[in-house]
Simulated scan of single mutants.
Amino acid sequence: MIQGIKNTRFQFPGQVDFYRGKVRDVYIFDKTIAVVATDRISAFDVVLPVPIPFKGQVLNQIAYHFLSVTASAVPNWVDISPDPNVTLGKRCIPFKVEMVIRGYLAGHAWREYRDGKRTLCGVSLPDGLKENDPLPEPIITPTTKASEGHDEDISREDILKKGIVSEKEYVQLEAYTHTLFKLGSEMAREKGLILVDTKYEFGTYEGEILLIDEIHTPDSSRYFYLEGYKERQAQGRAQKQLSKEFVRQWLIENGFQGKPGQTIPEMSPAIVNSISNRYIELFEHITGKTFVPADSSDMETRIRSAILEHI
């Protein structure tokens, strides 16, 4: 069985810092960052113990694809992707919020609604909605960007009240978020998919607001298949989806939601392989390209060499 890459531990000339996120290893230079998408997988803000082969390549290449095709509408941080798992770009100062936008009532929003909440992050929702129903219009439900632990829902009003983002900046973040979601939804529909919900992160570089991180990947987004959506919804059946939600559902079914005292279920080779295949399926479906697995014989050397050539 092919082994995924779980961690990198490089030291580059001119490197000033290093940051390890849930999935990415970030090498920081004066005005540049090199982001390595590893094969780590997280759910409920917990990194699972077994890496998923090719997951990092899928995430990096999907994100690079969408960052490239949306750059004329919303400026972003990317300069180059010299390796299937690597992207280099501008070192931005991130805003401490994630801009979550939802077009359908699914996932976390549905669980809150099912439990009786009709206001989410200060946004009112109508009665009578079913799981996976379209919302009257896309809504933004921000979360705080936690350095550790769980991200927390927060309203626009609280973001401004706490001074996390200025009102002028937040208006721009909202506008960029709606623009990206509209573009992402149109591109998904062209491929027979529905972009259900997603998140965007932003930062500043020399005073300019830029889109940062990944976009429209299965880690940051939820997709339904367009074909059969209406029929499944009318019949009260689960939607066929391409997202990380199936990983969360598997964990829930096996008694794990990231809560204290819970144990992560065993990740058998069959489970790991099935997750890998689902990520590859999404890559091919959303980009319309055939997935070409990168050489996995010595990933650390391959990735290190690619970064060295471009710093």
Results as ranks from 00 to 15, higher is better:
residue 66 F to M: 02
residue 43 A to C: 09
residue 43 A to G: 08
residue 55 K to W: 06
residue 41 I to P: 02
residue 48 L to A: 10
residue 43 A to I: 09
residue 62 I to A: 00
residue 54 F to A: 06
residue 49 P to Q: 06
residue 43 A to L: 12
residue 62 I to L: 00
residue 44 F to K: 07
residue 67 L to Y: 10
residue 68 S to I: 01
residue 56 G to C: 10
residue 47 V to I: 14
residue 48 L to F: 10
residue 59 L to V: 01
residue 46 V to P: 11
residue 58 V to F: 00
residue 64 Y to G: 10
residue 43 A to H: 12
residue 66 F to Y: 10
residue 56 G to Q: 00
residue 42 S to W: 07
residue 57 Q to Y: 05
residue 57 Q to W: 03
residue 71 A to E: 15
residue 47 V to F: 08
residue 65 H to D: 04
residue 43 A to E: 09
residue 46 V to D: 12
residue 50 V to R: 13
residue 67 L to N: 08
residue 71 A to K: 15
residue 67 L to I: 07
residue 42 S to D: 14
residue 66 F to K: 00
residue 50 V to S: 14
residue 57 Q to G: 09
residue 63 A to S: 15
residue 51 P to A: 11
residue 66 F to G: 02
residue 45 D to F: 02
residue 68 S to V: 00
residue 47 V to G: 06
residue 47 V to L: 11
residue 44 F to S: 11
residue 53 P to W: 07
residue 47 V to M: 09
residue 41 I to M: 15
residue 57 Q to I: 02
residue 69 V to I: 15
residue 67 L to G: 05
residue 61 Q to K: 12
residue 51 P to V: 08
residue 60 N to V: 12
residue 67 L to C: 09
residue 47 V to D: 07
residue 63 A to N: 04
residue 52 I to V: 15
residue 45 D to T: 08
residue 58 V to L: 02
residue 44 F to L: 04
residue 69 V to C: 14
residue 60 N to Y: 03
residue 70 T to F: 14
residue 50 V to C: 14
residue 67 L to M: 11
residue 56 G to N: 02
residue 60 N to W: 07
residue 71 A to C: 07
residue 70 T to K: 00
residue 53 P to F: 02
residue 64 Y to N: 13
residue 46 V to T: 15
residue 41 I to A: 13
residue 57 Q to P: 04
residue 57 Q to E: 15
residue 47 V to C: 04
residue 58 V to W: 01
residue 54 F to S: 02
residue 42 S to F: 09
residue 58 V to S: 06
residue 47 V to T: 14
residue 43 A to F: 14
residue 42 S to I: 11
residue 41 I to W: 11
residue 46 V to G: 12
residue 56 G to Y: 01
residue 48 L to N: 11
residue 43 A to T: 08
residue 69 V to K: 13
residue 60 N to R: 03
residue 56 G to L: 08
residue 69 V to G: 10
residue 63 A to W: 05
residue 54 F to D: 13
residue 52 I to D: 14
residue 63 A to Q: 03
residue 71 A to Y: 01
residue 41 I to D: 05
residue 60 N to P: 05
residue 59 L to K: 01
residue 57 Q to C: 03
residue 68 S to M: 05
residue 56 G to S: 08
residue 59 L to N: 08
residue 44 F to Y: 15
residue 51 P to L: 07
residue 58 V to A: 00
residue 60 N to T: 06
residue 41 I to R: 13
residue 49 P to I: 02
residue 49 P to F: 02
residue 58 V to R: 00
residue 63 A to F: 04
residue 71 A to H: 11
residue 57 Q to A: 13
residue 41 I to S: 09
residue 46 V to Y: 12
residue 68 S to W: 03
residue 63 A to L: 07
residue 58 V to H: 04
residue 58 V to N: 05
residue 65 H to N: 09
residue 55 K to P: 07
residue 67 L to W: 04
residue 57 Q to K: 00
residue 70 T to S: 14
residue 58 V to E: 01
residue 41 I to F: 11
residue 54 F to W: 15
residue 44 F to H: 12
residue 62 I to M: 10
residue 59 L to Y: 00
residue 43 A to W: 04
residue 58 V to K: 00
residue 70 T to Y: 13
residue 68 S to K: 07
residue 70 T to G: 07
residue 54 F to E: 09
residue 58 V to Y: 01
residue 59 L to T: 03
residue 49 P to Y: 02
residue 68 S to P: 03
residue 52 I to N: 05
residue 48 L to M: 12
residue 57 Q to F: 06
residue 63 A to D: 04
